[in-house]
């Protein structure tokens, strides 16, 4: 009996840890939507949600309840199984990426040696949800949205992966915790300074990867109505919404880990080891929101041009320079 318990205990701990992480992440996602509405509201000289709960703090919960109780409509000509599957793919892929991110020194759910690759793989997987939903909806707008998404994924995935190569070269590892430790050992403490080009390319392609303004072409409300999820309603729509914000959180977390020194900070905050991680994460999330309130949307071909003509050459040059420096310095 004891033997069984002993062998089951690590698994149990892992499950509990995963659950805690998931719940915390979900809360973050929910309140990112709230923060987005509030922040953009204030940027646009309006108030934002303030009706549900004190200062509108229960708004995300009300939103989820509303989405849960809404009718789930499947269009007639839709490919049902794919239609059901698509939002789940997006969400699961987004949520799983969280498991390899080191929140602080002692907390990584899955300390895999190829953490960066896992994240890249999962983030490209999540765009399959977008493409499949565009295909399965049997709607012209959704189809166009899916087409745009697939083209966008190809061009931005490459730039993003290349921008991370510089980090891998400098850290000499693909394990995210190792990367953080390697960063704190450098004179700058963060890679954002020596890898400034890589950081820039990563942030731009991260916005494109999460389909946010100014790269929200697959959904482009004013062009394709809502793009790939135009036919979704109720909780399935909610899942897509969730996936988008999960994507934001994950991408910001990756940026924090790879470029901004992860959990490390100028001084230790007693009792809250993940303090600096969260501060950096929130700063990046604010950046996302800020961009959304400021910039207009790119056109499809301009987006492609930006990806292939600017970001990819930039990140290639970055790799070259980093490699040469690594050789000689």
């Amino acid at each position: 009996m004891e033997a069984i318990l002993k062998s089951a205990l690590p698994i149990l701990i892992l499950v509990v840890e995963a659950l805690v992480l998931l719940v915390v992440a979900l809360l973050h996602v929910a309140y990112t939507t709230y923060a987005e509405r509030k922040v953009i509201g204030h940027m646009q000289q309006r108030i934002g949600p303030n009706r549900v709960g004190p200062r509108g703090l229960l708004q995300p919960i009300a939103d989820v309840l509303k989405l849960l109780t809404k009718e789930d409509i499947v269009p007639l000509g839709a490919d049902r199984s794919l239609f059901y599957l698509a939002p789940l793919i997006s969400l699961v892929a987004g949520a799983t990426s969280l498991s390899v991110i080191p929140v602080w020194d002692k907390f990584v759910l899955a300390n895999v040696n190829v953490g960066l690759l896992v994240i890249l793989a999962l983030s490209s997987l999540s765009s399959y949800g977008v493409i499949l939903s565009g295909w399965a909806s049997n709607s012209r707008y959704a189809f166009l949205g899916g087409l745009r998404a697939s083209a966008q994924v190809i061009s931005y995935e490459v730039a993003m992966a290349l921008s991370l190569v510089g980090v891998m070269l400098m850290a000499g590892s693909m394990n995210l915790a190792e990367i953080v430790r390697a960063q704190t050992a450098t004179p700058f403490k963060i890679y954002a300074i020596p890898q400034i080009v890589g950081f820039f390319v990563f942030m731009v392609s991260a916005i494109a990867e999460t389909n946010r303004v100014p790269f929200d072409l697959p959904e482009a409300e004013t062009e394709l109505v809502a793009g790939y999820f135009v036919e979704y309603s109720g909780i399935r729509f909610g899942l897509f919404y969730l996936a988008e914000y999960f994507g934001m959180v994950v991408m910001s977390a990756v940026a924090v880990t790879c470029f901004l020194g992860g959990w490390a900070g100028p001084f230790e905050v007693p009792g809250i080891p993940f303090f600096w991680f969260l501060v950096k994460l929130y700063a990046l999330l604010f950046f996302y929101i800020w961009v959304r309130a400021t910039l207009p949307r790119y056109r499809y071909d301009q987006l492609m041009g930006l990806g292939w003509k600017i970001l990819i050459p930039l990140s290639l040059a970055n790799i070259l320079v980093t490699g040469l420096l690594k050789l000689w310095v």
């Binding site: 940027m43 646009q44 000289q45 482009a220 004013t222 309130a293 400021t294 910039l295």
Partner: peptide, 16 residues
Amino acid sequence: HALDIGAMTVFLYCFR
């Protein structure tokens, strides 16, 4: 026009 092209903040400033 600005909202169509994607700049949503101008929209609310103008409406004010």
